[in-house]
Every structure is written in C-alpha cells, then in structure tokens.
C-alpha cells in the first residue's frame, strides 16, 4: 500500500495549493456547494412562489423553468452553461462561475418544488385566518405561511444540499479544481496509489455529508415542537 502518497497530498486534497496558489480540493467543493445552495434557495423560493401564484405571467415561466430543468441531467446543465456563456456573453466565463451558475439553476428548480409542496402542505386554515384578519396576500405569506413552511422544508433543503455537495464533483468535467479533480490530478501524477487516493475521496465526501445530515436531524428535532396541526 502507498498511503504515503495520500498523506503527502492531503493538504492538496483539502484546500488545493492555498495559500501560495489557488484554492482547490475539498474547500473548493464546499464553497461551490455553499454558494450554490445559497443562490439556489433564493431562486427556488422565487420560482416556487411564482408557481403558486394565480397570475399566469408569474405561474407559467416558473412552471416551464422547473419542468425543463427537472428533465435534464445535471451534467447537461454544466456543459450547457459552459458552452453557452461565450455565445451569450461574447467571452468565456471562468469554469468556477460557469459551474456555479449551472448548480444554482439546476438546484433552484428542485428547491422550487420543495417550496411549492411545503406551502401546499400547510393547513388551509392558516392562510384563511391570516387573510380573514385583513393581512394582504404578501403579508400572510411573509408572516404566517413561509415561517412555518420553511421550517418544515429544512429536511428537504438539507437533502438537496447533500446532493449538491456530492454533485460538485461533476464540476471536474469542465476543469474546476475541486476535490475530485485534485484526486485525479494526484492519481495521474503518482500512478501507483489509485485505490488509496479514491478511498480517501470516499471518506472525505462521506464525512462532509454525514455531518450535514446529522446536523439536519438535530435541527429537525429542535423545530418539531411548534407545528401546525390539522
């Protein structure tokens, strides 16, 4: 076994060439995932609420967006934005930004569905009580519906976040220097320890996702206390 290869390159796996050179490795994967989920949350929230709207000019664009994206593989999205950006912008977009846009647009569609389902799952009486007391639709959403349904959505959001964290490995394909690419680079250079290197990858991805899911479970228990009952 050649575990020495793994130890020698551990810092490269964890944060790339940082701080002398560019950030990469696991840190890059996590940054991609964090930024991805942050922007995807807002995009998905907007799209989900638009889809719930009774106005066709809000409803249909959201519907088309969600349905198209959900019918396309993520890898397709990544390629698509990578090759589309130069056409639209007139110059190439750096790999990182291009991958991030793909992750945001892709995950946003799933978040939109989570938001829609979460809002619809609340008892109808909540909206009626809010509107019945004179709150506008927007006020009712902001102060009554979303605070409750967003809490209920947290487990689904975390699921999506975990998926995205793992899916950041796909950014490797367009050359983003995240964990999978770092591993491949080291493997290509050393040639003698693929087993050890990829086992290490497995453990690293697992640890990150495990921490996320157990955090989510704790949060869920904490928030389960004040739920709307039918």
């Amino acid at each position: 076994m050649h575990w020495q290869v793994v130890w020698d390159n551990m810092d490269y796996f964890l944060w790339g060439a940082f701080p002398e050179g560019a950030l990469g490795g696991l840190a890059m994967s996590i940054i991609l995932a964090l930024l991805g989920i942050f922007f995807a949350f807002w995009l998905g929230l907007a799209a989900g609420l638009m889809r719930l709207s009774g106005r066709w000019w809000l409803h249909y664009p959201a519907l088309v967006y969600v349905e198209i994206i959900r019918g396309v593989p993520l890898l397709m999205c990544i390629f698509w934005f990578y090759f589309l950006a130069p056409v639209v912008l007139g110059h190439t977009m750096p790999e990182f930004q291009s991958a991030l846009v793909a992750f945001v647009v892709f995950t946003g569609a799933y978040v939109a569905e989570i938001v829609r389902a979460g809002v619809l799952a609340l008892p109808k009486g909540q909206m009626e009580a809010a509107r019945g007391s004179g709150l506008s639709h927007v006020q009712a959403m902001c102060f009554v519906i979303l605070p409750q349904s967003l809490r209920n959505m947290i487990p689904s959001f975390v699921n999506q976040f975990v998926s995205l964290t793992k899916d950041t490995s796909l950014a490797y394909i367009i050359g983003v220097n995240e964990l999978t690419r770092a591993a491949t680079q080291v493997n290509n250079r050393t040639m003698n320890a693929p087993m050890e290197i990829f086992l290490t990858m497995l453990v690293l991805y697992f640890i990150v996702c495990y921490v996320l899911t157990s955090f989510s479970r704790r949060l869920e228990r904490h928030l389960a206390r004040y739920q709307a009952r039918n």
Partner: peptide, 13 residues
C-alpha cells in the same frame, strides 16, 4: 369583520 373558525387556526409558530 372578524372571523373565528371551528379549527381555531392559531398561528403555531
């Protein structure tokens, strides 16, 4: 016009 429902519909949060 205040309204009171059968199911109370208080805001649980």
């Amino acid at each position: 016009i205040g309204i009171v429902f059968q199911q109370f519909n208080l805001y649980p949060h």
